[in-house]
């Protein structure tokens, strides 16, 4: 199903924020819509956005490639993005990253065997006083998880599983 068929209301609302002659501004919000829906940004969606905004597919692709919250490849359903920048690292973020990787049996950038979670390190998320922390990016949008321990990670993973089984029912 095309983006326009699936999200007519959202697209209209996004376009209404910008002057009609500068509708290219809508490219980032539209990409957020796709990223959330598909878990990545497909070629087809890039083509559709390009058409919708009267710009080239290359121009859309350049935006996708530049910003870290858009992904060109489908990976885990949820992305677990751990900040390991200086302030977080001063509060144990590197050790936390290591523990999470060991616990989930993945490397930095890897995805769990069940395809649920991709673990990756990211740059500062403005939560320096609440480290260790990570951000999850998935079908529920972008959420912050702060003051983290492995136990609390397990709680989060458990809640994902509950959502999953709920969906399947």
């Amino acid at each position: 199903m095309s983006l326009q068929q699936k999200y007519p209301k959202e697209i209209k609302q996004i376009l209404s924020k910008y002057p009609p002659e500068y509708k290219r501004s809508a490219v980032m919000p539209l990409l957020h819509l796709v990223q959330r829906d598909e878990g990545y940004v497909s070629k087809e969606s890039m083509q559709e956005i390009a058409k919708l905004l009267d710009i080239t597919e290359t121009e859309v692709g350049a935006v996708v490639g530049f910003y870290t919250l858009y992904h060109e490849k489908k990976e885990g359903k949820y992305r677990m993005q751990i900040c390991t920048d200086l302030p977080c690292a001063l509060r144990g973020a590197d050790e936390f990253m290591k523990q999470v990787c060991e616990h989930l049996n993945v490397e930095d950038g890897g995805t769990t065997a069940d395809g649920m979670v991709t673990v990756e390190h990211v740059m500062c998320l403005a939560a320096c006083d609440r480290a260790p922390m990570f951000q999850s990016q998935g079908p529920d949008g972008i959420k912050y998880h702060e003051y983290m321990t492995i136990d609390r990670v397990n709680e989060w993973l458990q809640s994902l599983k509950q959502v999953e089984t709920g969906e399947k029912r």
């Binding site: 924020k17 500068y22 290219r24 501004s25 809508a26 490219v27 980032m28 919000p29 990409l31 957020h32 905004l53 710009i55 121009e59 350049a62 935006v63 530049f66 910003y67 870290t68 919250l69 858009y70 990211v122 740059m123 500062c124």
Partner: peptide, 27 residues
């Protein structure tokens, strides 16, 4: 007043990069 979300780029805190980004381009 309208909100506009970036997508993960430190450079967009620089004001002219922010404007580029708000116009739908790379920051």
């Amino acid at each position: 007043i309208y909100t506009h979300l970036g997508a993960g780029a430190y450079i967009c805190g620089e004001e002219t990069a922010l404007l580029e980004s708000l116009e739908g381009k790379r920051g």
